[in-house]
Design a protein around this nucleic acid. Sequence first.
DNA 1: ACAGATTGTTATCGTCAATAACTGATATTG
DNA 2: CAATATCAGTTATTGACGATAACAATCTGT
Lengths: 175, 175
Amino acid sequence: MGNSKNRAETLAKPGDAAPITAEAVRRRAPKLQSGPLDYGLLKSTTGFPLKVVWIIGYTLLVKHLGDAAITPQRFSMLELIGVNPGASQSQLGTALGLSRPATTLTIDFWQERGCVDRRTEPNDRRSFGIYLTEEGERQLEDLRKRMLTSDKALTANLTDDEIAQLRGLLAKIHQ
Amino acid sequence: MGNSKNRAETLAKPGDAAPITAEAVRRRAPKLQSGPLDYGLLKSTTGFPLKVVWIIGYTLLVKHLGDAAITPQRFSMLELIGVNPGASQSQLGTALGLSRPATTLTIDFWQERGCVDRRTEPNDRRSFGIYLTEEGERQLEDLRKRMLTSDKALTANLTDDEIAQLRGLLAKIHQ
DNA sequence: ACAGATTGTTATCGTCAATAACTGATATTG
DNA sequence: CAATATCAGTTATTGACGATAACAATCTGT
């Protein structure tokens, strides 16, 4: 999606103190569904509203994560490292659908911030085991809270039952 | 999402004659949900599976549209033009969340393919009314079929009731 | 009539992602 | 055991894309 730094800046204005709700994002997000024009067949598909909602969720998450440099993808990597200490870069990258160069850069990012250690594993000295540092644990704990808040904001219009329904249907699509 | 031409080439191999199912795409798509690693908190969110399913749908659509140059976004524009003949570029771009430069290029694309006409409107000579040509009508008719097939493949695991439920829940999120 | 806003186009720039080439380490095979 | 192939990770390069800003033409309002 292009220039993430600039996009994030327009989404998360520094002086934006108001609570971040799905409604607030919707107002500012590109008008994908409302407006004077007829959306024709797009209205009667599943894919189009799926995209719209995904954009809303992505935008919300970027705002809630707070730091424009911490993209959803980078956050996902930190979470994955936290839950799977010692996993190799290949495993982590594959799990997130990243190319190997992209994986390297993502882990570089967290290492430069002191959140992650690369440890050479004695049994296979080609690969690293990736581990959170204490700073990484702290960061992750904070970011997790932000992520959960964001996810709640996304589904604010839904009851708990409906959220469960939605997740069930999504899970059924990708088995 | 980066280099769309190259990505599309890897997704839609020329000699790929097998029917395009959600399952087939899942097998080839980046492993976002399966694998040896634990996804931790990501599993219990709505946003993450939403992204996974959106990627599956996007990938399916790219394959079904057949021509790597015809991206979902470009298709959406053609559909919007077909349903709203005479709309201005601003209106079309706004409806799809495109910047004005991006709108210009998208309409350039269809005009170069002879699918679209820019007609200067007498009441406001700054803007164009955008209209489908006969070739555009033919293209759109074909692409619509492909899109509907793709959307059906995406929800192949769901009953009609479940599809309606899913759309209802998505609609409820973005009101 | 003139300042300001709006429509569309073009140019420029930074960023990102994919590819390929490279290093170092391990596995395989004769 | 030597030669080759494969694998993990890094780096360099390239191309495409999106955002921004500057621009020309037209319209609006006072």
